[in-house]
Design a protein around this nucleic acid. Sequence first.
DNA 1: TCTGGGGTCCTAGGACCC
DNA 2: TCTGGGGTCCTAGGACCC
Length: 418
Amino acid sequence: MIALADCNNFYASCERVFSPALKNKPIIVLSNNDGCVIARSNEAKSIGIRMGEPVFKARKLIIENKVNVFSTNFALYGDMSKRVMSLLDNMSPDIEIYSIDEAFMDFSGIQDCFKLGLEMRDVVIRHTGIPISIGIAKTKTLAKVANHFAKRDTKKGVYVLDSVNQINTMLKSMPVSKLWGVGSRYARMLNSYGVKSAFDFISLDENWVLEKMTIMGLKIQHELKGKSCISIDTNPSLKKNICTSRSFGVKVTELQSLKESISSHAVRCAEKLRQEGGCARYVSVIIKTNPFNKLDDYYYGYKAISFNTPTNDTIDIVSAAENLLKSIYKKGLVYKKSGVIVGDIIPQDRVQLNMFDTDQKRAKRDNLNSAVDLINQIIGRNTVHIGSQGISRKWQLKREKLSPCYTTKWNDLLRVRC
DNA sequence: TCTGGGGTCCTAGGACCC
DNA sequence: TCTGGGGTCCTAGGACCC
């Protein structure tokens, strides 16, 4: 069995630990620049303050209900997280720290999972003051479902989901949008096909799920049916990506102020990189304008370089970032109109012709359009994307509506080899 | 007026190799 | 008349997570 421990309303609970007078009072925690609500106590949830809501929209509710408002204090949350995780680690054979407030634990071989869950919950609240919920089931995704129901049982806070009947009942009462791995896009798509509950989802044809939601969707489905596809990772590898980003409180149009931000972001990135003991092969800079501002055009500037020699040197990273910034600013941020991607990226809707070596040359020399028509006829599409290898096997498979022939990144769940 | 920050994985095409 | 194919790496972009 796998257990998922999840701290309840983690940031809000952390703040409450240090201000006991706030017990049973509504609390919210805000993002950078105090822009959005990123954590809410149960009381704040019941008032109707929504997750991610901009503060100015929730202001009325906040004032009327005398909600206690905090800016983020990540040093505090990180420290509290370490304490919680170390307690859980002491009581469980194997643990995967999944996020600042969640951990998966391997409960295989445990006689009474429910009892151990209750003990953990008790120990954590006594030693840290943070309430946690624990869901226990056969797979990670089912443990997430179990946790969903553990949260609703405020008395016990532990839920073991083990019989098929019980699982089906729970999945029937759970909207598909609440499933781990189903975000707003997939939820909307699934709803449009009449798939409303998690149970509707597991009843879908596997090939349909694969086609619409890639291998990720199929894994969710298998996990919900009790077939484990996502194992516990107790030995996390180095980060594959390190990012420092901030929103500006106000609109910025001067290169100089962008440069200052980019430099300090780059320094911070280099710090994180050295902490990890890693090296950077690749640096990229992205600048966007406010997507919510309907009055201005939306700009998205992107530029990246690869280092010949991977580095963790602050100077290298900062100067690379500054150079990238300059080229974006000059090329894109000032001139380009909404939605245009700046940098070295080629627009998606291109018609690139490169069918067969000899034909390609002839086509370029003679008449590009007729060759495009020819390809369209062959593959029966209006828009042509043909690679340098001509119509590859990948394309042929696609035309026959078979699965893609990628294999290297797929696990044993589904091996489609051509 | 004011809308977060830091990550992951998968897909697909292009370049290139043998 | 015929058009190799299997593999890796790179990269952008789209989905997701907390």
